[in-house]
Design a protein around this nucleic acid. Sequence first.
DNA 1: TGACGAAACGAACGATCGTGCTATTCTCGC
DNA 2: GCGAGAATAGCACGATCGTTCGTTTCGTCA
Lengths: 195, 195
Amino acid sequence: MSKGALTRQAILHHGVEIAYHVGLGGLSIGTLAAGTGMSKSGLFAHFGSKESLQLDVLAQARSEFVDTVIRPALSMPRGEPRVRALFEKWLASGRARLPGGCLFVKAATEFDEQAGPVRDQLVRDHRDLYESIAQIFRTGISEGHFRADADPEQFAADLDGVMLAFYHANRLLDDPAAETRARNAFEALLSAARA
Amino acid sequence: MSKGALTRQAILHHGVEIAYHVGLGGLSIGTLAAGTGMSKSGLFAHFGSKESLQLDVLAQARSEFVDTVIRPALSMPRGEPRVRALFEKWLASGRARLPGGCLFVKAATEFDEQAGPVRDQLVRDHRDLYESIAQIFRTGISEGHFRADADPEQFAADLDGVMLAFYHANRLLDDPAAETRARNAFEALLSAARA
DNA sequence: TGACGAAACGAACGATCGTGCTATTCTCGC
DNA sequence: GCGAGAATAGCACGATCGTTCGTTTCGTCA
């Protein structure tokens, strides 16, 4: 990998880390440059605009989330084990405060009323996520683990809700029962899909 | 009401409206002053600091949310009707894009990793909300509408998750099925609490 | 009506924002 | 090892940020 691509990646890694604390809008080029030991203009040259930087940081977060949550789940056997692995990996990434998934939640609420390319990208990413969840759930139907008339899209929305509530309780409230509650809710979803 | 208190209230109303779009951090004194037709310094004098302004805007959002969601629900008969009214009012406030509740979700993700008085206040508000939900649910237990061993705190977390997923699907994705999904999830919660 | 306190204004501060330029340093293929 | 081109730095810009200060306008009550 060339020198430029290397520092670029280091910048984005730091960027995800910072944006995870202050949001994509709060991520400023000056502080990011200071954090990576670069000059403002030197860093800026890599992206050309702040919006482009935000999109690249978002792409980095997405790939980190896919690597730590989606892909490991897809390597599990089809059906309930795969669904369960998705949930566990997702939960673990939140517990460990991995910036990937968290940044997505933060960016989604930050930009949901601000039109522009960042919002458009977030919409695409969220749709992809929902589609991935639904697809993983469908393997559970075709394997006979879940009812044939279960609604995969409904399950995707429900699971997202469980995770969002977990993020809130875990990160804002520091509620030690957050994980237990998330597990209870997840098991309730599964048993409703089975019966 | 004195002149000062009147303009102050007008400022806060506008503040909630703006923060609902750009977040509490993105809410700047300059734009807020322009939006209310005041000078920056004249507006600033009402609050003394940006942080104080943020706290006051948050208090305004909280009171709007209590007025449009919590209080109407509490006026309904104890038990399931009250729980159902809470859900319906909450859903309606999201559908109508009333800034009150939405701003809370936005501020929660915005400040969940930024220590300070704003975060502390958000934690208190969120705990109060959860306690209110649990309390309303408990009236359903004592009225015999729900199982005696149902967990009110778990229900509060579950309902919050349903609403968070609804916000996401409704505001970011503009998903027309968002409301139906929220209703399905809510009914599933209720029937699980009954059986 | 005159006076006094509250309310709002105008101008300015230092800091930081994103973004251009130009120059310098570095990297890497020949 | 040299030269081309990429990578980074330095500096400055206009704008906006939160904040302060002194002044002016306004509301209210004696």
